[in-house]
């Protein structure tokens, strides 16, 4: 289906790939459907686009592309509603905050997004008592 996006204009999004966030993202609980869209000519950065508000989008990364030592330990209960039975079903992304210059881009490693790619369900998970925060620079 054709969808308006914030960053890539009006593009085709496969409706079977729409991810359902039952609880939304923190602070944005009313928006529950997102599509994960690759940026053109770019294999490191993706766009998490709200399907309910074209003006709502995030840049996300696979955290291990930039932070190879990133460790997450998610309690089973945290992702029970995402329904991940096998580790292979899980995809993890971190939201970027991009303000000003490239060197100032930060990744939120404290609250990654976990997606069950078989069931198209996602959740923003808070890593309790972890060593991470919401602002890790992508480029040191």
């Amino acid at each position: 289906m054709k969808t308006d996006t914030k960053i890539l204009g009006n593009i085709e999004v496969d409706k079977d790939s729409v991810i359902n966030f039952a609880g939304g993202l923190l602070g944005l609980e009313d928006y529950k459907k997102y599509a994960l869209i690759a940026l053109p000519d770019n294999d490191k950065f993706l766009c998490l686009q709200s399907m309910e508000d074209a003006g709502l989008a995030f840049f996300v990364i696979n955290p291990w592309d930039f932070f190879p030592d990133y460790e997450i330990d998610i309690p089973d209960g945290e992702i029970a509603d995402v329904g991940i039975g096998q580790p292979e079903q899980a995809r993890v992304y971190c939201i970027l905050t991009v303000s000003g210059e490239i060197k100032d881009i930060t990744a939120n490693l404290l609250a990654p997004i976990v997606i069950n790619c078989d069931k198209n369900r996602g959740k923003q998970v808070v890593l309790a008592e972890s060593k991470y925060n919401t602002k890790h620079r992508l480029f040191q």
Binding site: K6, I7, L8, L25, L26, G27, L28, L39, F45, C47, L56, A57, F58, F59, I95, L96, T97, V98, S99, N108, L110, A111, Q124, V126, N133, T134, K135
Partner: peptide, 17 residues
């Protein structure tokens, strides 16, 4: 803190892309 960060992150735009 995470809510605040999400709000800042939502300012992603095509220039940044």
């Amino acid at each position: 803190e995470i809510k605040k960060e999400n709000m800042q992150a939502a300012k992603a735009n095509s220039e940044m892309a």
